[in-house]
């Protein structure tokens, strides 16, 4: 069992937890992910690592409640435990392997969307700890979904916050923010690392391609085992089939087939939706819809 030692509610539907997981905490790096399973009947859920403490042997995870399993996870409290917690999975971020000179020679912009701010955080922290100043955009639909802003400010030189509705920070999405920085405020970047919803990463990549800035993205597709066994996490990168779990999760954003990735994400929508309804309203939706048969 893997015990929860800290829980914070970051926003309405976003939860942060520190979980004791010695094997993972000893060997993980930014960019990697874990798979958690709440109990015997739970799903295996992949979550990118948000932070780690080698001494306390803890891993920080952040998740948004989007379905039945994350809804159940959100109900766990300090002292409760996950039945399973395995990792680190996937390949660490490229920047982990680069020398400090190379890192310092580049000006990197991190773009974090919504709950995607969590996996950006350890990379920004890593950069600072290796003597590099980086900038970071945190974007979300509205103020309530902006997370980890204070934490990020500790390690990033500049943190730019934007919200679609202008309820906090700059009004506009992350792409509007990038344009504002590059076109109006004279910022120059050699590399962008963008993590967030697939649709956000798609549009950031279209823009950075135009701007000629190499861009890395982190994919979080449907997975089962996370070790290359099931092939569910296939992503097309540069025309080739890659498994996000063992070849990624980070890829060259200018080569990723985002449209294909979005279509794949919808695969279990009906099943997942059904499970959610069952959780909220009981087992009345076995055959879909309201059970009146009108949907047949």
């Amino acid at each position: 069992m893997f015990k929860i030692v800290r829980k914070e509610v970051l926003s309405d539907k976003i939860i942060l937890m520190d979980v004791v997981a010695p094997f993972v905490a000893k060997s993980c790096y930014p960019g990697q992910f874990v798979i958690v399973k709440i109990d015997e009947k739970g799903e295996r859920i992949p979550l990118t690592i948000c932070d780690y403490d080698r001494e306390k042997e803890t891993i920080t995870i952040v998740f948004q409640t989007v379905g039945v399993s994350t809804e159940r996870m959100a109900k766990l409290e300090v002292g409760d435990a996950f039945r399973d917690f395995v990792g680190p999975l996937g390949v660490e971020s490229e920047l982990v392997h680069e020398s400090e000179e190379v890192l310092k020679s580049q000006k990197i912009l991190f773009v974090a969307g919504g709950v995607g701010t969590a996996p950006v955080y350890p990379q920004v922290k890593w950069m600072k700890e290796h003597g590099c100043d980086v900038d970071c955009i945190i974007g979300a639909r509205d103020k309530s979904l902006i997370i980890l802003e204070e934490e990020m400010k500790k390690y990033a030189k500049n943190v730019f916050v934007c919200t679609d509705n202008g309820s906090y920070g700059f009004k506009g999405n992350v792409n509007d923010m990038i344009k504002e920085l590059v076109y109006n405020q004279g910022y120059k970047y050699d590399k962008v690392i963008a993590i967030g919803p697939v649709i956000m990463m798609k549009f950031v990549c279209l823009l950075t391609k135009e701007l000629g800035i190499p861009t890395i993205v982190s994919m979080n597709p449907i997975m089962v085992d996370g070790t290359g066994m099931c092939g569910a996490c296939r992503v097309i990168v540069g025309g080739e089939v890659k498994f996000a779990c063992v070849d990624g999760p980070e890829f060259d954003g200018h080569l990723v087939d985002f449209d294909g990735a979005m279509k794949r994400q919808r695969l279990y929508k009906t099943e997942e939706g059904r499970a959610m309804l069952k959780l909220e309203e009981g087992d009345t939706h076995k055959n879909g819809g309201c059970g009146c048969g009108g949907d047949k």
């Binding site: 085992d225 066994m229 099931c230 092939g231 569910a232 089939v241 794949r264």
Partner: peptide
């Protein structure tokens, strides 16, 4: 890579 194509490993797992 279409939706609805599975490896036997995924389906059976």
């Amino acid at each position: 890579t279409a939706n609805g194509v599975f490896s036997a490993n995924e389906y059976l797992t």
